[in-house]
Every structure is written in structure tokens, then in C-alpha cells.
Write a protein that binds this DNA or RNA. Structure first.
Lengths: 211, 211
DNA sequence: CTTTCTTGATTGATTGGTCAATCAAAATAT
DNA sequence: ATATTTTGATTGACCAATCAATCAAGAAAG
């Protein structure tokens, strides 16, 4: 008979995963040692990790899997299909702002990007759960709105990448390259401007301009 | 007495730097061993590196410095200030396309981004020679065109990031995440669409763009 | 209730291997 | 001969992974 509750096992496991996220985030996969992780998790032996995980790579995989839920905000997509473009773009933009305010997701984002650059397998996994979904949704949405005649006809995949790329670029400028003026350029201004340009650029029968 | 020509010394040094770029690009800074680099450079000892460079980090720095010239395409900026928006955006877009076709610069781009994510010092250096210049130029250009009344008034920094971010996002989708449809979505289509959306979105009097 | 048995959790030490950096000696040029 | 370049061996540190030993706690037996 298992002497310990299965819940206990799972709780300890999650504790290690959570601590590993912090360590991986701050040092990257390679430079994070098993001892770092053990220390952060409050256990006294790096060996213990192998009781809960196959190896270091397995632990890393579990960390990603645990937190990919974060990226799956973009799963409420179906209800969005009928909403007007401004709503949809603002919603996606605001999701980004929220992410930027969250102390965990930015390091996670950097970790995923950094490891994706080195390991194709990680790139594929991250892509499948995150970016690809976003692109596919937005592409389908834009196509629908073009069919409806709300938006101008153009390559929907390219347009979707334009919008999402704008936001990604802002995150990189701010969080990776720490460009000084990204500090004064607020996420809100960034999103509003991006949405504005895209709507103006894609809507059929665009507005009267101030002459 | 200097027994060897200074040119000889410099040539050997460059040979090591060039080989190091290949190795760093394919394996990243951490996983590239001095032996890998020595082999690639056709020298038979990892120890030789220390004759030409202070340490591995110094070699890496030299590699970056040598190739940051690649990023400095964006130095012909002054003459561009007077050109119309479509020309300027297409020019920047085409610079990206050229980069994507070049077998060296894409790995270099990934290397720089990857190491920037891990090491703030690298991020700052890369930023200063590359992205920041691009942003600053485009921001100033957009402000000028707004003053002239050619473009709508909006936050120029945000708008500049939108455009460049669009292109960056495409590179990431294609080269890092290898999204399947990025293969069929040609760089040309991407650039044309991005320029189109931005012009339409930012021009005063949207009907006047070229057919 | 207390003792013994059993199991899984945890530890610390160890192993096997990698790698950056150093160094002395050899090769090469002057 | 002298100075410089190149080499291969070595050093010392670090680390993933393994493993035998210990520990804690529950179950079973008395």
C-alpha cells in the first residue's frame, strides 16, 4: 500500500517545478544546475530531482507544460469571431499588456524564446501551444471579416503577422533590449497606436481625414 | 623585433573570428567549445585561442564587433529623410528580405538574440549598434513626415515599433518557430502587405496611395 | 498500545565526463 | 641565437547522473 498520499507526491513535484521555473528563467536551461534547483525548492539534495523526474531535460519539459496554460488565453477564440475588428484587436492587445504586468510570464516568455532559439524541439512545442494558435485564429478572423466586406482584401496571414509582430517587437524592445524610451512609451499607448494603424490600414471605406 | 608581419597576425586572427562565428551560430556561446572553434579554424590546438584573445568571452565580443557592421546598413539614413514614406518603408522592408536570403546573417541574428536574452551586457551592445539606430531613425522620419502633414499625427515611437516589429515577428515565425505557412508566405508578400497596411493606416488622405 | 516490518522519500558522497584556461616545450620564423 | 607562434598535455573546477545508506511514517502484528 502506498504509504504516502498521492496528493503529497504531486504537491512536492509541483513545488520543484515551480522553483525550477524561477531558476531556469533567471539562468537559462544550461546554466541552471540541479543544485540551484534543489536549493530553490528547499530540498537539500540535487539527487532528489531524479526521484521525481527522469532527468534535467524531463524537468524542463514539465516546467514548460505546466505553464503553457498561460499562453492558452487565446482559447476563447470562437466567440470572438463575430465581434468587430476593434474589439478583437484591443482584446488581443490588452492580453499582451496584462502579460507584461505579470512578474512570472515575462521571464517565462524570455525562457521559451531563448531555448527555442537553441533547440528546435522546444521551438516546435512552444510554437504549437502558443504563437501558432494566435496566428491561426487571427488569420481566420481576418479572412472572415474580409469575406464580410468589413476589411480590405489582402493576404490575411501577412496581416495577422503584422499585428502580432508589432506587439512582440515591443516586448523585445522593452524586456530584452531594455530600450530606454520603451519605458516612457507605455504599453497602453503602444496597443492603442497599433490597433489604430491596423484598423485604419485595413478597414474598407476608411474614415474622413482631417485635412 | 616583431618577427611576423602585423598583417599576418591580423589575418590569422580574423580567420579564427570567422570560424568562431560559424560555431557560435550553430551551437550558441555556452555549448561551443574552444576545441570546436580551433578545429573549424584549422588550427590544431584550443590553446592557441589564448594567444590571440584574452578568453572565450573576449573572442565572442570580437565576433560580434566584427559583424555588427552588418547591422549598420541603416547608416545611409540622412538621405532618406526627404524620400516619400512608401520608398522608405519599402527600402527598410527590402533590407530585411536581403538579410533573410543571406546564409550568414540569419544565424548571426539568432545568435545575437539568443545571447541577448541571457546576458544584459550583450543585449545592450547589440541594441546600441542595431535595433536602436533603426528605431531612432524611423521615429525621427515619421515625426518629420507628420510635421509636414504627410502622415497622420500619432505616437511616432509606437508607430516605428509597429512597422519594425512586423518584420521581426516574421523572421521569428520563419526562422525560429519554423511555422509551416511562413514558408509559403514569401518575404515579398510580407513586406508588401506590411508597407501597404502602414501607409494606408498612417497616410493623410488614404486614397492617394499608388495603384 | 507498542513493536516490528515495509515502503517510499531524502540525503550526501561518488562517478565519469566535459571544458576553460594554463603552461612548458616544440616548431617556425627572423 | 632570439623572438614568436603553435602544440598537446595538464590542471582545476564544475556538473549531470548514480547509488548506497538513512530516515520518517504508515501498516501489520502482537
Amino acid at each position: 500500500m502506498p504509504s504516502r498520499d498521492e496528493q503529497d507526491w504531486e504537491r512536492k513535484r509541483q513545488q520543484i517545478i515551480d522553483s525550477a521555473l524561477e531558476v531556469f528563467s533567471s539562468k537559462g536551461f544550461e546554466k541552471a544546475t540541479n543544485k540551484d534547483i534543489a536549493d530553490a525548492a528547499g530540498v537539500k539534495s540535487p539527487g532528489l530531482i531524479y526521484h521525481y523526474f527522469k532527468d534535467k531535460g524531463d524537468l524542463f519539459r514539465q516546467v514548460l507544460e505546466r505553464h503553457t496554460a498561460t499562453l492558452q488565453l487565446l482559447s476563447h477564440t470562437d466567440e470572438l469571431m463575430e465581434r468587430p475588428p476593434r474589439d478583437v484587436l484591443m482584446l488581443m492587445g490588452n492580453a499582451f499588456i496584462t502579460t507584461l504586468g505579470n512578474g512570472t510570464t515575462v521571464p517565462l516568455f524570455k525562457l521559451m524564446l531563448g531555448e527555442s532559439l537553441r533547440r528546435p524541439a522546444v521551438a516546435q512545442m512552444v510554437n504549437t501551444v502558443g504563437p501558432m494558435r494566435g496566428f491561426q485564429f487571427l488569420t481566420r478572423y481576418l479572412e472572415l471579416q474580409m469575406d464580410k466586406g468589413v476589411l480590405r482584401r489582402m493576404d490575411a496571414r501577412a496581416a495577422a503577422r503584422c499585428f502580432i509582430g508589432s506587439l512582440i517587437g515591443y516586448v523585445l524592445a522593452r524586456e530584452v533590449f531594455r530600450q530606454p524610451d520603451s519605458a516612457t512609451l507605455s504599453p497602453e499607448t503602444m496597443v492603442v497606436t497599433a490597433v489604430d494603424i491596423f484598423l485604419e490600414g485595413m478597414l474598407v471605406g476608411s474614415r474622413e481625414h482631417a485635412e
